[in-house]
């Protein structure tokens, strides 16, 4: 494995010292373009963990669906997954105290179907394909990754560099984790502003201008929703969709069953339920068989709500959910706006 030594070293130490019962991470599957999740309990297996730039699942979602309750679990996470775990913790779906987040810096991931042959690592200014360094080809990256503003998982317990020994402890737990692996907390050399520029550029490109023709926008989304075959993939993979009794289920009253494409309320409901906390993890779009560009819709709405409510999803576990809270000032404000 070409990169990710810091991650593997830390995981190995954490398992050896009994700091966690198991670690959820990606390991190489049947070949170098295949990564699959694995719950690792044996420290010796830590060497199988890969940080190659593929993200076929949200590990936060896997944790919520299949993680053992009551165990101490480590996760090797990119920012999107780290933020997903924090959002789940806010909603009491996982216990943050039992979770140890080993963050890995990330500049984008690719879908192996679109990618070239050979293992891929994406860096902020280059990429390595099958061992050869090349100029970064942004068209290979998932759309949501290009718009991402969180290359460094500062909300995890530690942030590891892809290449080399760099690792930063972000929390006291993180300090313990680095200490266990005999690693020193050292600063990052990542150029955060370049990522901000890339994110802004792609957001500008992907998000329709809200000031212009509404009808065109509406027609576009209705046409996209017409393709939907109600596979529930978007709902199933979303880290924020954990409800066992989901409003979209066929035996609930909301979305009339037995209709293909499903009533538009299917999409508008999920959008309304998720948008305030959308992580832009991209899993919904990655899983949609009908190629509906879901993240374009969810991410744009989330950005709008983010600025209105001054709320960043998945950063701070103590931040209250925007639609479940209000401020003193709002109690006093007389109008229907936020004041």
């Amino acid at each position: 494995m070409r990169y990710g030594d810091t991650v593997r070293k830390t995981v190995q130490a954490m398992l050896e010292k009994g700091m966690v019962d198991e670690v959820l991470a990606f390991v190489r599957g049947v070949d170098e373009r295949d990564v699959v999740p694995a719950f690792i309990t044996d420290a010796a297996e830590a060497e199988k963990i890969t940080v190659a730039s593929y993200q076929p699942y949200s590990l936060a979602s896997i944790l919520a669906d299949y993680g053992d309750k009551g165990k101490k679990i480590g996760l090797v996470v990119r920012s999107c997954d780290a933020r997903g775990v924090i959002e789940l913790a806010k909603r009491n779906q996982v216990n943050r105290d039992d979770i140890y987040l080993i963050g890995i810096e990330c500049y984008g991931t690719v879908n192996p179907a679109n990618a070239k042959e050979g293992e891929i690592y994406i860096f902020h200014d280059a990429m390595e394909v099958g061992g050869k360094k090349e100029a970064l080809d942004e068209s290979l990256l998932s759309a949501n990754c290009r718009r991402c503003e969180y290359p460094v998982p500062g909300m995890a317990d530690i942030s590891c560099a892809i290449d080399g020994d760099g690792a930063i402890a972000n929390t006291p737990k993180g300090e313990e984790m680095l200490a266990a692996a005999n690693l020193k907390s050292q600063g990052s050399t990542v150029d955060a502003s370049a990522m901000k520029e890339r994110a802004a550029r792609w957001q500008d490109k992907d998000f329709p201008n809200l000031g212009t023709d509404r009808q065109e926008r509406l027609d576009y989304w209705l046409r996209q929703f017409d393709k939907c075959i109600k596979c529930y993939g978007c709902r199933n993979v979303c880290p924020l969709c954990y409800c066992k009794d989901c409003a979209l289920d066929a035996d609930r009253v909301w979305v009339e069953r037995g209709r293909m494409p499903p009533p538009r309320l299917f999409h508008l409901t999920r959008l309304m339920h998720i948008a305030d906390s959308c992580l832009n993890c991209g899993q919904c779009e990655a899983v949609c068989p009908m190629e509906i560009p879901l993240t374009r819709l969810y991410h744009q709405l989330h950005n709008e709500l983010r600025s209105i409510f001054d709320y960043e999803s998945g950063i701070n576990i103590d931040d209250a959910l925007p639609l479940g809270t209000f401020t003193e000032e709002e109690m006093k404000a007389g109008g229907v706006e936020l004041g």
């Binding site: 809200l210 509404r214 009808q215 065109e216 926008r217 509406l218 027609d219 576009y220 989304w221 508008l268 959008l271 309304m272 948008a275 305030d276 819709l297 744009q300 709405l301 709008e304 709500l305 209105i308 409510f309 925007p322 639609l323 706006e337 936020l338």
Partner: peptide, 11 residues
Amino acid sequence: IALKRMLEVLG
């Protein structure tokens, strides 16, 4: 407020 923003984004 959130709902109206959703409507706007959708068109």
